[in-house]
Design a protein around this nucleic acid. Structure first.
Length: 469
RNA sequence: GGUAAUAUGGCCAAGUGGUAAGGCAACGGUCUGCAAAACCGUGAUCGCCGGUUCGACUCCGGUUAUUACCUCCA
């Protein structure tokens, strides 16, 4: 039984999918006007972990996400660089794919671009107008927020406060176009001829920011979907507006479980593009050699909690991950001298930790408690490696479970491929020989030599083992 | 101003009524020809004040600090 914290109700609820064994999930993707930063990646990783766990539990997850490839920031960027909006969008959409690949983020079942669903958007907006939920004004189309009962509930915003705030912020032209300051644009008129635009019943224009997600969720999933995810900052206005327009159109509940991830902070301040205090994944990948450590850091913090990102936290993640890898590698090595018998006690302990892992993840994806179970397996492995008799099959099960559970965090390749040169192979066997002859001076000399060649040598109860530096 | 969230050992971080998981770091020890890896052991009364209770980190009230949202934002 999985329980999920629903932002809408502000409590953990027992998860029940609409269709048994199937999950429709929508996660808001990035606006492709720049490289994604660690915060964007955190969101993608958080929901990737959710998805992987749900799949692990046997669900068939249909995961839809978007690229916002038309909006003010893209238009501005295009104008600044003197290229088309499409070029900007293509460049950074490609970069998104390039950057998320090393982080082992599974591709969405469907990833659609706003510009691919323009006809659907126009139909959607027309329907809203037909139903009286939206109105055209000077080429723009606005949604009548107050007409939708329960507007603002998701973010627990007070309507009159919002009205007051909005009225103070908007300029006279905008106020004049809107019936009410809190109304939001579902379609924006082109005010000049140079920016990207489409023909519509209301003249040339482009979609408002929120509409694409509502359209895609309905088009590729259903009127009512199981899970909708995104950063906590999207609760208002983005998701608030999605709910209003989606439910206004279909009359059906839009989303059963709203999930929002916490931020990545730098010195306890939110990392954001507008504040400029961000590190892009693109840059980080060029200076940091181990993408799995980045993945580990992002995946092992519970998704609703903030992650304080800095060199120290990344380093700590690296150390923890290396400890898991070392245990896995040493256990794997010990299999070589394993024997054909079953260690029931070991298998029982493994089972227990796997169970602990699932109990933790079932509880709103409590990755920290799940991690504690993983370290239980690590301790088990480390302890077992010192045994004289290795039950090969049982130890193999332990290794497999460790890798399997780590893969839910999206951390793969616990064991890196090890290829030796002829010289290294010779040195290793020379060292075994030297130790056999108690020529420790020579053995230590060879160990140093191998170290310089990038090979670490260790002596274990099962003999000499080695790994890459 | 409004609405929320967070505050646990040096660091990261679990824990929602019965005397505080796990990881990292540190220190001591064991194993080892030496090392490495590993193993064993050692530390916090939970921002502050008050209340409820036989008993609170856990509930209630207040207070302080930090952060976020209130139409750029994962």
């Amino acid at each position: 039984m999985i329980r999920i914290y629903n932002t809408l109700t502000r409590q953990k609820e027992v998860f029940q999918s609409i269709t048994a064994g199937e999950i429709n999930m929508y996660v808001c993707g990035p606006t492709v006007y720049n490289y994604i930063h660690i915060g964007n990646a955190r969101s993608a990783v958080a929901f990737d972990v959710v998805r992987r766990y749900l799949e692990y539990k046997g669900y068939n997850v249909r995961y839809v996400s978007n690229f916002t490839d038309v909006d003010d920031k893209i238009i501005k960027r295009a104008q600044d660089e003197g290229v088309s909006e499409i070029e900007i969008a293509n460049k950074y959409a490609t970069a998104f794919n390039d950057d998320t690949l090393p982080l082992n983020i599974k591709p969405a079942t469907i990833r659609s671009r706003a510009t691919e669903v323009i006809p659907d958007i126009i139909t959607f907006v027309s329907d809203l107008i037909d139903k009286g939920y939206a109105y055209e004004s000077d080429g723009d189309v606005y949604f009548r927020a107050k007409k939708f009962e329960g507007y603002g509930i998701l973010a627990h915003q007070d309507l009159s406060e919002m009205e007051k705030n909005a009225a103070g912020r908007l300029d006279d032209v905008e106020l004049k176009r809107k019936e009410d300051p809190i109304d939001f644009a579902v379609w924006k008129a082109s005010r000049n001829t140079t920016e990207i635009s489409w023909q519509s019943p209301w003249g040339m224009g482009r979609p408002g920011w929120h509409i694409e997600c509502s359209v895609m969720a309905q088009k590729y999933l259903a009127d009512t979907i199981d899970i909708h995810g995104g950063g906590i900052d999207l609760a208002f206005p983005h998701h608030t507006n999605e709910i209003a327009q989606s439910e206004a159109r279909t009359g059906a509940k839009f989303v059963n479980y709203w999930m929002h991830n916490g931020f990545v902070n730098v010195n306890n301040i939110k990392m954001s593009k507008s504040l400029g205090n961000f590190t892009t994944i693109h840059d980080l990948l060029t200076i940091y050699p181990d993408p799995m450590a980045i993945r580990y850091l992002l995946a092992t913090t519970q998704y609703r909690h903030p992650i304080n990102y800095n060199d120290d936290t990344l380093k700590q993640a690296q150390v923890e991950l290396d400890r898991i890898r070392t245990a896995y590698r040493n256990l794997y090595f010990s299999l070589n001298s394993g024997k054909e018998f079953t260690d029931e006690k070991l298998e029982l302990q493994v089972k227990k930790y796997v169970q602990d892992f699932e109990i933790a993840m079932d509880d709103d994806f409590n990755t920290q408690n799940a991690l504690a179970a993983i370290f239980g397996l690590v301790s088990l492995a480390n302890d077992y490696v010192d045994h004289n008799d290795i039950a090969k099959k049982s130890a193999q099960k332990l290794a497999d479970k460790l890798a399997k559970l780590m893969s839910i965090f999206g951390v793969k390749e616990l064991l890196e491929e090890q290829v030796l040169t002829a010289q290294q192979t010779q040195l290793l066997s020379d060292r075994v020989e030297a130790r056999k002859n108690h020529d420790f001076e020579l053995a230590d000399h060879i160990r140093n030599e191998l170290n310089q060649l990038g090979i670490i040598v260790e002596d274990s109860p099962q003999g000499q083992r080695w790994h890459n530096k």
